[in-house]
Write a protein that binds this DNA or RNA. Structure first.
Lengths: 254, 254
DNA sequence: TTTCGTGCCTGACGAAAGTCAAGGGCACCC
DNA sequence: GGGTGCCCTTGACTTTCGTCAGGCACGAAA
């Protein structure tokens, strides 16, 4: 179920429109899609034609929930961009439990690290919500990278920003108590700086718990506690009564 | 207190030897130094002449403990390589406590992220053990990066590996209990796979505690508990009676 | 010598997370 | 209707971490 036309074709050719019919979850096509992809940290600041060259031998994939993209140890001759749905990267702890390292939602990319360096994926990747992905082939990507000096520089800068995000997450895990991590996660879902806000959780609570580094039972308790701070949850919809007040509490707290 | 000669000069000129006298902590000079620097993730796989071009306007620094390299918000027109000593990167939590994000020991680099993207440092950097650093200027670095297509590619791959390390650390912080993180930290200090091993802690316990994400009191308790597993500490020297057994316990544990 | 600061350990206590177990609500399917 | 699986919540209990406080060893400064 791959798209035969160029992934980023700005003006889909007639024969492509049929192919795109096979990709019902393609919310954005043509220019809009390109715009989303160009917003990725890896690609930020790159020209559109460079992008097309980078992704010359890429294909789109439609995968159902529970599809295994790759297992740890598989050869990494490509990386992936999530256009829709969700993909989780997980490791297996020695005692057999699963540990979710990261969950990728639209629009984000993963696997470049393995493709560019190790050539072997270090983690498992599984689709956890029916997904549309771009599979970026190694050949054209690396060739373009080597041919154009600016490309590498721009991508490097993008990676660096990403690196900072990870470093900041490490800082959070060490220094911020779980309930605050949850609160900040919720606050990050809204643009509002004051007043009421209603956000919807991007994934279920099992995964949210894993994201903030606690068990799901603990998450339930945290959410119960947050109710006293004006945070009410119903299903995956969360209402924050007073955004400013919650923000303040996060900052002021212990 | 900067070295006037080229940082990586293979054969120090006469006038340089005097300058190097000002840098008593330069353990490695010339080829040895270059070798160390080239082992950095950022530079792995680069030719020596490329390295020299990258670091054309770099200088060496000798700084005493407690020197402030830069504060959060300072313009990032360079990044640093630690040749000797230690530098900590820290953030200030809203309530004024310090949070150590990372500690850099020889030979490692930091600040590239800020230099290449934001042009502002997001963290504070302070020397915590008398240090010898290379301050890599932005101009030549970026110029070289843009002029040679392969350089960016190689550096990108290096960054990706680094990225994986961070991702794995996040995984650890979420999934591994503190005592195991300490144990694994100790195990990582030795090459031995079995039998006895004696390692020396690369920094004091306050910092070690911060590294593994617990308080120093908790670290003391953890080390006390590890004594039952044949781990005895005396000062900054740690003896592991049975490396294999400890490894197994880490893996088998809960 | 005393004094002070530093680094480290330890105990007591409370808060909070993990674990185990049970159960409710809901969709889906015979 | 009843069965089943999934997601989530709650309670009881255990474990552990953080906090506060005290104390000891050591070296530098007064």
């Amino acid at each position: 179920m791959t798209c035969p036309c160029r992934v980023l074709c700005l003006v889909p050719k007639p024969e492509c429109s049929k192919a795109q019919g096979q990709l019902p979850r393609h919310r954005a096509t043509g220019p809009a899609l390109a715009k989303q992809v160009m917003a990725l940290p890896l690609f930020s600041g790159l020209d559109h034609d460079v992008l097309e060259r980078l992704m010359a031998d890429s294909t789109a994939l439609n995968l159902e929930r529970r599809s295994l993209l790759f297992s740890a140890g598989a050869p990494a001759d490509c990386f992936y961009i999530v256009l829709d749905g969700q993909v989780k990267l997980s490791a297996l702890t020695p005692d057999g439990r699963e540990s979710i390292v990261e969950v990728f939602t639209p629009v984000s990319s993963f696997g470049e690290a393995a493709m560019l360096s190790d050539s072997v994926f270090p983690l498992h990747a599984e689709v956890i919500e029916d997904a549309t992905l771009i599979r970026v082939g190694r050949r054209a990507f690396v060739a373009t990278l080597k041919s154009d000096p600016v490309v590498g520089y721009r991508m490097l800068a993008g990676m660096c920003r990403w690196h900072q995000r990870l470093a900041s997450e490490i800082h959070h895990l060490k220094q911020i108590p779980p309930w605050q991590r949850v609160a900040e996660f919720l606050l990050a879902l809204t643009d509002a700086h004051a007043g009421q806000a209603v956000v919807s959780l991007p994934f279920n609570k099992e995964i949210l718990a894993s994201r903030v580094g606690i068990r799901r039972e603990s998450l339930s308790r945290v959410l119960a506690r947050l109710r006293d701070m004006g945070v009410s949850t119903e299903g995956n919809s969360v209402r924050i009564d007073d955004v400013a007040s919650l923000r303040q509490r996060c900052n002021a707290a212990q």
